[in-house]
Computed example of a mutant assay.
Amino acid sequence: MRVLLVDDDAELVSMLSDYLRSEGFEVDSASDGESGAAAALTGQYALVVLDVMMPRVGGLEALRQIRQHSRVPVLMLTAKGDDIDRIIGLELGADDYVPKPCLPRELVARLRAILRRTTSQAEPTSSNQPLTAGELTLFPDRHRVEWRGSPVELTNAEFQLLAALLRAGGRVLSKQELSEQALGRPHTRYDRSVDVHMSNIRQKLGAGSGPHAPILTVRGVGYRIILE
């Protein structure tokens, strides 16, 4: 429950820190992307909240540095209506985003959703048997994915989306179902998170959207996994 807030807005950081502590979180902060990335890589935090616009090293560059060495969940704070930063952040490996100005209650809800996903991966359950589809294998208990025998590094959000598709057994899952099952929140009309995460998964599998891609887009509906 230890969170790192990385934002150069001291007033906002103070307000969010107080609210998060009242909700049971431990909170540390950094005021620029360089120190924030360094702190995030210490392994001391369950979550990182990272603002996009900061001096010296911005949030997107900080995220890039973090993802080179760590899968720690990252939630981006983006300017309201700035879809470009949101998409770039998701493409770089952010788990989720919240537009600024944000309500502390919404931020906490998003953080708890991410924590539920990451915590469930560590809990032994009967659903932790390997999931397979052709040359794709996902190991829920080990947070490991193999494609054609080689390991694939996925973020927590990407891992959960792929697991949801595999558990569906070839059935089409709508974006609403995928968002609720894998991201822990409802899908909204202009939210492109699921699409961007799916694009990232395809690229990491090296399969793109061609005839051998294991993930099929069902236009106007959602996605399904190819089982053979």
Rank of each mutant, 00 (worst) to 15 (best):
A30H: 02
I225M: 15
D28W: 07
F25Y: 15
R116L: 10
L41C: 07
S174G: 03
H212D: 15
G220F: 14
A213N: 07
V27T: 10
V3G: 11
M53E: 06
P186W: 02
V13R: 12
Q160T: 05
D18N: 14
T155Y: 01
Q181D: 08
N128Y: 04
D9Y: 07
T188P: 04
I87N: 02
S174Y: 10
L5A: 12
P214H: 07
V74T: 09
V218T: 14
A79C: 01
L154S: 03
A122G: 00
L227G: 03
G170Y: 09
H187V: 00
R2F: 12
A157P: 06
F25P: 02
A10T: 15
H69Q: 12
G89Q: 02
I215Q: 05
V27I: 13
R21L: 03
N200E: 03
L138R: 08
V52Y: 10
L90G: 01
L138N: 04
H187P: 07
Q160Y: 10
R171Q: 15
R148I: 03
P55H: 06
A109E: 08
R64Q: 08
L205N: 08
I226P: 01
L131N: 03
N128P: 01
E180Q: 15
P101E: 03
G93A: 05
A163L: 11
L165I: 08
N156W: 11
Y223M: 14
R202M: 13
G43L: 07
S14R: 15
T78K: 01
C102S: 07
S70K: 05
R110A: 01
A133M: 05
K100L: 06
S179Q: 09
R64S: 10
V108Q: 03
D51I: 00
N200T: 07
L161A: 05
Y223A: 12
L4F: 14
V98Y: 07
G134W: 12
M15N: 10
S193Y: 08
P73M: 03
L16F: 01
L12N: 04
A182M: 01
S209N: 09
E158F: 04
V74P: 04
G220D: 13
A30W: 01
A30I: 02
N156Q: 11
P186I: 04
R2Y: 12
R105F: 03
A46T: 06
L90K: 05
T137A: 12
H143F: 14
P73H: 06
P151N: 08
C102A: 13
Q44E: 13
S31F: 14
A10K: 15
E135F: 09
L41V: 00
P214E: 04
A40L: 07
R117H: 05
V218W: 14
A133D: 06
Q181S: 12
L107H: 07
G222Y: 14
R112Y: 00
I201T: 06
Q176H: 09
R117C: 04
N128E: 02
E180H: 11
D7S: 05
T118F: 00
